[in-house]
Design a protein around this nucleic acid. Structure first.
Lengths: 185, 185
DNA sequence: TATTTTTATTCTACACCGTAGAAAAACAAT
DNA sequence: ATTGTTTTTCTACGGTGTAGAATAAAAATA
């Protein structure tokens, strides 16, 4: 293993990680959909510099999305499965709320392996493990919950009167949802 | 009442209705998000002509949305409430699928009176009238269903492999949903 | 040391978008 | 013939993603 092998060519201020980090910073403080030019000026760099590290905007957004999805809540055994699932949902919705455009990128990354959508599935499985549901029923339950939250997250972003709509508004529909899972088949 | 009172000024090829109609045509055949320039060239007119009839793009999209939402299914008594509700959902999702951007406009029009979101609420009420649910439970059920469908519709548009995702994919989650309403409180 | 090669960054430019504001065109009323 | 009203077009600005060429700064090589 070579130690401290120096890099050739012009020295770089940028890295993929720095770009993704800068993008997350920008999104949190601006709460707007990211543009390459805005990100570039935040990084104090020419817009085209970003394209040396990412093929296109979609590729950058995917990297950002994967990074953000790391921060989602991991259910454990510290409380009831209802509480754990509720915490998971709140965590997921907060991430979606605070990062405009995240949802669309997430969905466009499709159902392939190891995508960020798969991360939620794993956490969901953890949360409802105590129920030991039949597989097909579990899949239907996951689809219903995930798409419900996506619809809700989209409403959060589209709402003009932001004060009227908060994450806490999921409570009653979510309670209704939880009541399905409690019913034995 | 004056008969055939002639209009002053330059004669107009355009009307609000013609613009909305042309927009719907364009969306159906292109299946893309509408742009003012694309619509203008479809109507064989200068882009700015459209702004004589609509304040801005958002106003145009709202008119289009209202027009499209007229076409949604009206539940009756011809079959079980489950079937009527299912037909309503399929109808709604098909409209959302065939008109990209409709969903976002619909949500941005907010919860005010007589908005297109209100149209769905009325149809929902018709469909589940036989159940005579308590008001707060009905609201939670509506929220859960609407946001689920919105999430699903968004997934339809974002999916890269369009063949993998069709409206029929709602059936199992929807069946799960229907099972909630059947449970007595 | 001088030259070449590799890499990172910037610059310029294009096609698209929404749309503001001025100009022009076509008619009715005067 | 002139004025007024309405509709349509023209020109232009600032925004977007990004392709392609030019430039700069280092290491590698001669």
């Amino acid at each position: 293993m070579t130690v401290k092998q120096k890099k050739r060519g012009r020295p770089s201020k940028l890295t993929r990680e720095a770009i993704v980090l800068g993008a997350k910073e920008w999104m949190l403080e601006q709460n707007k959909k990211l543009s390459i030019r805005a990100l570039a000026s935040h990084l104090e760099v020419d817009p085209m510099a970003i394209y040396h590290y990412f093929d296109n905007k979609a590729a950058l957004l995917e990297a950002i999305t994967i990074s953000i999805m790391q921060g989602i809540y991991t259910p454990g055994n510290s409380s009831s499965w209802q509480m754990e699932l509720t915490k998971l949902c709140h965590s997921y919705l907060s991430l979606l709320r605070d990062h405009p455009g995240l949802l669309e990128t997430l969905l466009s990354m499709g159902g392939e392996m190891a995508g960020p959508a798969e991360v939620f599935r794993e956490r969901f499985d953890l949360a409802i493990a105590p129920l030991s549901l039949e597989e097909s029923r579990k899949n239907a339950a996951l689809d219903l919950l995930v798409d419900y939250m996506h619809g809700f997250a989209l409403a959060l972003h589209c709402a003009k009167d932001k004060s009227k709509l908060e994450v806490s508004a999921i409570e009653r529909p979510l309670a209704l949802y939880l009541s399905i899972l409690e019913v034995e088949t």
